[in-house]
Each structure stands twice: as C-alpha cells, then as structure tokens.
Design a protein around this nucleic acid. Structure first.
Lengths: 253, 253
DNA sequence: CGGCTACTTGAAGGATTTCAACGTAGGTGG
DNA sequence: CCACCTACGTTGAAATCCTTCAAGTAGCCG
C-alpha cells in the first residue's frame, strides 16, 4: 500500500494488519475524494458538523479562538489523519479545523462509522487507537506549553512532526516539508510571532536544524532529543497487541 | 441515585438515561471499592497498567514528569471520573496518575469493558462520551496554557472545576472544596509556585473569589467568566442526542 | 511596479521566574 | 505538653524570558 494512494491505510499498517476485505472497506470510506484549498474551514467552532473526514493530502490545523481574537492551535492534521469521530457524539464542535495548504479530503457519514464498529472490528480498533493517540499528543503538547521553554518546545514539535510524517512516508533522512508559517507555529507553541522567529533562528544557530525554504533539516537528532527531552512513548508508534485486537473482535461479535 | 452512592451513575444521568439493568451493570463495575490514600500512584508512567478505574471519592491528578523533574499536571480526576479506558489499548501509559487526597477507588478488568461495549451500548456510549470530553478538557487547558495570562488561567480553572463538581453534587451555591496545594495548581497552569500564589491573591483582591481554608467561594461568577473568557461548550454538559445513543445500539447489535 | 504576505531584527517594556526569607498550622516525639 | 519538624502559604527584590512596538527586507503575483 503506497502512502500516495492511501496515507490512512499506510498509517494503519504501522499499527495492525488488515485483511484484503478490511482494506477494501477503508478504501470505500475514502472514495469521496475532493480537493480543498488552503484557508478553507473544514469544521467551524459552534457550528453543527456531522461527517467524518480523512485527510488525504495537505496539512490542516485544529484550533480555538478566544473572543478577543487570540488563537491557539491544538494540533496539526497530517495526511492520513482522521477527524470528526468524537464530533459525531457532540454534534457541536468546540473548535475549528482549517486547511493550511491545498489538499485532498475524503468524508463519509456516521452510519459507515457505525458499520465499521459492528462489522470491521480491526478497522474500529485502528480508529480508536488513533483517537487515543491524538489525546496523548495533545497532552504532551500541554506539557510543553506548561513546562518547556520556547527552545525546548520548538525542538519538541520538530521531532514530533518528523516522527508523525515518517509513518506516512512524508519524512525521512532527517528532513521534511513544513508548509506552516511562523505565525501558526507561534500559535501552536504559545509564543509571539517574533519570539517564534528568534527561537527558530537559535535552533539554527546552535546547529540543531537547518531550514531551506519550507524544508526542515534535522542536523543533529540526538541533540534535538536532549534539548526537547523528547520521548516518543506518547506517539505510540508500535503494533497494537493481538489481545487488544481480539477484544474489538469480541465486542463486535 | 445519590452522588454519594455512585458519583459515576450521577454523572451518567446528566448525559443519558439508563435502564435499571444498565444501572445494575455499572454498579457491578464499581463493586470492588477500596480505600486509597493521598500520594499513592494509581498508574505509573512507563509501567504496564491493565485495569479500568472509577474514582469514587477523593481527588487525583494525571501528570507527566520531565527528566529533570519538572512536572505538568494534565488534568484533575474528580469523583465519578473514569481512567484507563484508553490505557487498555496502549498498555504502557505515557503519564502517571496520583491521588491528591485520601479516597475510594473501584477497578474492573478489560473483559468487563468489552462486555459493556457488546451488551450495554448505553453504558458504552457514556464511557465514550466521557473519554471524548476529557480530550476536549485537555484541549481547552492547552489553549489556556498557550494563550491565556496567569490571571485568566486561574479564573478559568476555578470555573471549570466548579462546573465539573456540580455534576457530581460536590459544588453548588458558588462554592466548592479545593483540596489542592498551590504547587499542584502551579503545575497545572504552567506557573511558578510563587506566581500562582500571587495570581490567586489578585483574584481575591479584585473581588472575584474568596478563599476560606480549602473552600473556594465564587464571589462574582459573571466577572470570572469575562476574565477567563469562559465558554462551557468544551465541557459538553448536556444530554447525548437520541440519534447518537441509537448508533451505539446499532453498532453493538 | 504596487501591494500583498511572510520573515527578520532592534529596542523597550512587561509578565513571570528565581532567589531568599519568613509565617503558620498540624503532627510527632522527647 | 512543649519543642521541633515539615508542609504549605506568603511576600520582597532582582533577574530573565518573552512580548510588544516599530521598522525594514524579501519574495510573489496580478
């Protein structure tokens, strides 16, 4: 399964093995592909939303806005990421999702999500795993915001994005494309735009990263990890235990 | 259902209505009650954990520690809160959970969780709702950490805790018990202990709250909400739509 | 070329941390 | 039963990280 064809299937393969029938089911969830352009809101804070989305290509952000306009970016959505599973429950989202770049989006309706949980337990297991992992990514970022310095936060998010992009073959050999303005980075890391810029420069000056246009080069991953106090446990990059998969099969049976 | 007997059932009742059989099933999940004393770790970062916990009485925190000892408190666990549902998937937690006060804990094993999802869809729906809500609470706190000032953060968490405690009848008439040291509060809000102390004092000086020992009195809820830019949408205090409950029933059927 | 948007840098100001010290209450042991 | 100990809270002063203000540069597109 190439990442280009279905980054979601690529990502699922890092967690568990699907049968051909299950892969076909996932492909069916993704069949409604359509292009979306940068700056489009996929979900709007406070406005009813009732589909599940799978980002096929491009980057998006989940974000919140305070009433005076201050913005916080909760998380990045990368190709292969799913959104709206929990929104199905709440119906009214407490945050917005916007495309950062042009991209491709597939969406499907709630009944198909129900079908996944009833008839395709391994697909359901993967969706649940990714939902749980998203919480753990947000908790790790909250830890950065609360207890890491600006430099540490910047080093940390560079490593996080690198590891997440690796899973969908969009990073490797110590580099990746970061199609994100410094303002977005600042809103993610709880910094002012000016300080985000200086922090990035410092990361360059001390030889940890290099930047060429939109490309980030990790010059010294080991040193980056030390600076960021980066432990990838929170990304749960590993196979789901067989016993856990079995539980999903039993629960649906 | 009194909150004293089962804060979880009390909390579930704010979201959806269970049949008597379903309530009996939940009571069964809770039947292994045992006392736990302050400072006990219920879950340890990096150490395998394989039960689901329901906090019956007392307060706990989910927290992370950086390698140099800096600590961040991800969230508070209050009576009626469930933990470990997602940990079942990952097996190795990326955070710890510690009791702040003496309390009472019930735990049950994974097969019973599976049973809930197979045979008691409304119970499963409630568990899922609470898991989704926890993510939204963490995302809101990340927003505080990223974009609110110290005073705004403090006002925000006071209101958050007030609203969450109301649901289990541990707050009302504008006051609640806060069995939390200022150091814990500082580690939650990303502040130094000293500044947390000054911020709390300022909240008192401008007449928004009053503090008598461990009791917090909200003197001016409206002004607190303005200062905190508090919108309770993120707490999803409301009934789960019938249509969503129906989906859980279909998925298990 | 004009007008965007993103990036960069200096300087001043402010919010928050760190360092240091002291106060207070509750618990324990001599 | 008082002295001591420890945990928690409080406050002042200096230092620092980060923000804000201001200005200018670079690249891109119509």
């Amino acid at each position: 399964m190439s990442a280009r064809e279905s980054p979601l299937l690529r990502k699922i393969a890092t967690v568990l093995s699907l049968s051909e029938a299950e892969r076909a089911f996932v492909r069916d969830l993704e069949k409604s592909r359509r292009p979306v352009s940068a700056r489009t809101d996929l979900v709007k804070q406070g406005e009813r939303y009732d589909r599940v989305g799978i980002l096929q290509a491009g980057w998006a952000i989940r974000y919140k806005t305070l009433s005076d306009g201050r913005r916080h970016v909760i998380n990045f959505l990368l190709p292969g990421d799913v959104f709206g599973v929990f929104l199905q429950l709440f119906e009214i989202p407490d945050h917005s999702i916007a495309m950062l770049t042009d991209g491709t989006l597939a969406t499907f309706e709630t009944p198909q999500l129900v079908e996944a949980f009833r008839d395709h337990p391994r697909v359901a297991a993967a969706f649940t795993w990714f939902a749980a992992r998203e919480e753990s990514i947000i908790a790790e970022r909250a830890t950065s915001l609360g207890r890491r310095t600006a430099l540490e936060r910047m080093a940390h998010i560079v490593l996080e994005l690198y590891r997440r992009l690796e899973a969908v073959e969009l990073a490797g050999n110590g580099s990746f494309e970061l199609p994100v303005t410094q303002e977005i980075l600042a809103d993610t890391l709880g910094l002012s735009l000016v300080h985000a810029n200086r922090t990035l420069r410092k990361l360059r000056e001390i030889g940890l990263v290099d930047i060429e246009g939109k490309t980030i080069l990790l010059q010294n991953i080991r040193a980056l990890k030390v600076v960021a106090d980066f432990d990838d446990l929170f990304l749960y990059i590993r196979k789901m235990p067989e016993s856990v998969q079995q539980q999903f099969i039993e629960a649906s049976g």
